[in-house]
Write a protein that binds this DNA or RNA. Structure first.
Lengths: 209, 209, 209, 209
DNA sequence: GATGAATGAGGCTTCATTCAT
DNA sequence: CATGAATGAAGCCTCATTCAT
């Protein structure tokens, strides 16, 4: 069981992660974070020495939460690689849809958002975001390999993905493109469109690459 | 020959577009824009009534410049659709590479950047960005149709793109994903990777869709 | 017939007088005055070297206009002192009512307004306002004396106003109080109430003072 | 004993009330208020969210202070209505005289000043000022009624004030006129003149109205 | 002489952060 | 340690005024 301080720290982290995600880094100030987390501002600074550090911590927090909630959960639900991919997009869609229904706005991707906002300002943020994507890439890699293996099993000798890294990069980039689209068009379904693209790409293109 | 005020206005617009692009909306202040444009801050405000309006104007300015510099130029250079697409990515890559060589940073996409930074704050920005993408979509649509026509000519009856809109959305989203990747990874070549993806997708996937 | 420059000058004066009256000195800027008067801002400064000078000129202008429109006209309409006073309040009321109907706001007294706003800042304004009131006092003095004369004639020996100056000051102050009330309560009729007070005071009090 | 923040808030309020009174709303800036109150500008904004809100708070503060210092004190000093009225004007005169001796300027009425300066700009200010006057009207009403009662007792049947509201409005307006006069003429004694007027009016006119 | 363009100074407000109890 | 209070730096914007053609 966690100590009080630890719970406070997590509360701050969750609140800050939400706010940064939905309202951007510059769109939220430390006052709001403190009051939303129901901590004194001075206490906030005891847990996180600066807004920047808090932002970095939220990126790690989001990475971990997304790893669990989106990827692990999808992997646990089925062993079929394409279904796993489908579930991943499904989870993301649902989260986005819930936010959209609640606030009328698609919040986009918490990593892309803060990365794009701050990349040219703050190298640490960029690296933290890349780190998160690297972790997600591991999951995509398993999907790509499993698809490959499935194919190999099927026709007993089909060409493997010439470049698994390329396929992983595509999946990462495709999700980001879909999240950006959902945010800019304010249309949660753009994420589902992204899945269609990914599926077609993997089914038709990648093996032949 | 343009009037003096007009030239000043354009100078401001270009300077602001550059700065917002490379340093984000919140990362730049009106003082910097004024001094980079070599105008007094008060003059700035005679041409643009607020920072927000200036940002909106830079989006339109960028849309027009990108339309000319990237799309029109690529379309003028060749009539082959896939070569046109290649040139588009090439132009974008070159611009990004030049910025990278100059500043050590990939600036990303001016539309995605400001759109992602401000979408949840400012609906006008979101709409202006969407408007830009809509215009770019027209060019992609021509490419998709020409590809289709070429294919029909080639094998005398291949399946057309079941959904041209879907292909256009893919192209838009793919470019955005690639630009985001180039920015977050600080690697201009991510844009060229994006072209590989696009080509494969169009060659293999889309017709069969 | 007036020269063009002279007419421009008067147009500026009238426009500025209106704006200062209805929106206060600090509430109006030189841009608005220039564009409302349809003159270039640089031209404005050729006619009036500063906002302060323009304000001073509007006070003189208003004094003259009020002298004509309110006092002279009322004096020309009748020779009965109390009727004259009544007409004075009537004119003021009508002007206020018209403004109220047009803008929904009672503008108050142009002299009190600017005097109160600027008295502690600008001695010239205070003096200009006092000068205007001194001129109006002349009219009130005639009314007071005529009332006195009438009374003397009536009962052949009633006490004259012990202090005509006191009565004049009362009339000036009473009008100001009424104008202030009309503005603060946004109620044009406060001016008519002012007349009731003035009449009663003059009829009952002053002679006995 | 009050908490520190509370004391700071009151210090700001008093300082701001003084400055707005003596130098007008637009004549004072937030920097001056902050340094006169010996607080950082940011602290100022923690207590009052805007200059406008600060001004509104000073109006309420002045209303309360005037209620106590001028009206309550005068009512506590004697039960004779005319003496009470005299004391009211006396207090006001003394305050004005002190300011005049200190700064060489009659500051006028804090309510009329800000009301006249801002009424056409800011409805809240107008209402706050009216609210103050409504409160003062209560005191005047008691005076008017007491005078009436006194008279009834004296001659056992004199006419009461036909319209107490009218008499109250007169008293309010008369004080305002006197304050305006004192400010514009820069002559504290104008306030004492105002009392002479009020006394005469009440003694001679009102009962017979 | 009229006009489009320019400008220095300053105003209100907000922010991330730290002090002091 | 938790909290109310404080703060320096900066940001957006506006103003009266002047220059230059």
């Amino acid at each position: 069981m966690k100590r009080k301080g630890e719970r406070t720290r997590e509360r701050i982290l969750e609140v800050a992660a939400q706010l940064f995600w939905k309202r951007s880094y510059h769109g939220v100030n430390m006052n709001e974070i403190a009051s939303a987390a129901a901590v004194n501002k001075a206490s906030l600074y005891q847990y996180f020495p600066s807004k920047e550090q808090l932002a970095l911590a939220t990126i790690a927090h989001n990475a971990s939460a997304t790893g669990d909630w989106v990827f692990e959960r999808s992997f646990a639900a089925t062993s079929d690689p394409m279904e796993r991919l489908s579930l991943i997009y499904q989870r993301v869609y649902e989260t986005t849809k819930a936010a959209f229904d609640a606030d009328g706005l698609c919040p986009g991707c918490p990593f892309v958002n803060i990365g794009v906002e701050m990349a040219t300002d703050n190298i640490l943020v960029r690296e933290a975001v890349n780190e998160a994507f690297r972790a997600f890439g591991e999951y995509y890699l398993r999907i790509v390999r499993d698809l490959d293996a499935g194919r190999a099993g099927t026709d007993g000798g089909a060409a493997p993905y010439l470049d698994e890294d390329f396929a992983v990069d595509f999946l990462l980039s495709n999700m980001n493109g879909a999240m950006v689209a959902s945010k800019l068009q304010n249309r949660p379904e753009a994420i589902l469109d992204g899945f269609r693209t990914a599926r077609k790409f993997l089914e038709a293109v990648a093996p032949a690459s």
